[in-house]
């Protein structure tokens, strides 16, 4: 185990597998968000389910572990990669050889982390520890998460932050999706193009989904 985790590919494996776990979480998260469009009751009930379901309660700390592994090993690998070229080239032209996101995954990851701190303090912290209004549905008191979320989505700078977060995430996924499979070795001549296309489609689904929902509420607010 020691030789596995000490090897670069072992560390990459952890970044990749935690990345795929986070990628699958994004689909669940966006699906929940889509209930915002179905109205207050639907969204609140789904949010209530997410807060109380046993499987979800088990997965929530796993998600935190996933984030920590992904961030910790990315930092460790990036530091050793920076040391691998003490004297930089005077001129570097990667315009033909690699995509911009692939060259800037660490920076994009940092921007996503900054967004995540904002996002958790806006919603997660308030829902867990803050003062929330309750609404009764069929005799069950449910936190009014809908009002909390849509209250933020009518303020332009909050919406701007959420759209920016979705764009950073989109660029990160554009490389991260297919790169995760390559690191796991699940990649060959036949699957290369397929993974590229699936990755692009998934990125569009996630980035467009997460940015269009706040924009929908903002436009709705100003359009009356």
């Amino acid at each position: 185990m020691g030789s596995f985790i000490n090897a670069s590919i072992g560390k990459k494996f952890l970044v990749s597998i935690s990345g795929l776990f986070l990628i699958s979480f994004l689909a669940v998260h966006l699906t929940v968000n889509l209930f915002l469009l179905a109205g207050q009751e639907s969204y609140n009930l789904v949010a209530h389910f997410m807060a109380t379901d046993r499987v979800i309660s088990f997965l929530e700390p796993m998600l935190a572990v996933g984030f920590l592994l992904h961030i910790a090993y990315s930092v460790i690998l990036t530091i050793s990669n920076q040391k691998a070229r003490p004297q930089k080239f005077a001129e570097v032209d990667t315009s033909r050889s690699s995509s911009w996101p692939s060259q800037n995954m660490f920076v994009l990851g940092g921007l996503i982390l900054a967004f995540l701190v904002l996002h958790l303090s806006n919603f997660w912290y308030v829902m867990q520890f803050g003062e929330m209004d309750y609404i009764m549905y069929d005799g069950i008191a449910v936190k009014d998460a809908y009002t909390l979320v849509t209250g933020k989505f009518v303020i332009w700078y909050h919406v701007l932050a959420y759209v920016a977060g979705a764009v950073f995430l989109g660029f990160h996924l554009l490389h991260g999706f297919q790169s995760s499979f390559l690191t796991l070795g699940l990649y060959n001549k036949k699957w290369r193009r397929r993974l590229e296309i699936i990755g692009i489609l998934y990125t569009i689904f996630i980035a467009a989904g997460f940015s269009l929902i706040p924009l929908y509420f903002l436009i709705g607010h100003y359009a009356g």
Binding site: K12, L77, S80, N81, S97, S102, Q178, S179
Partner: peptide, 10 residues
């Protein structure tokens, strides 16, 4: 002291 691959395809 070589770095690790980040799959940039460069």
């Amino acid at each position: 002291g070589f770095g690790s691959c980040t799959n940039t395809t460069a």
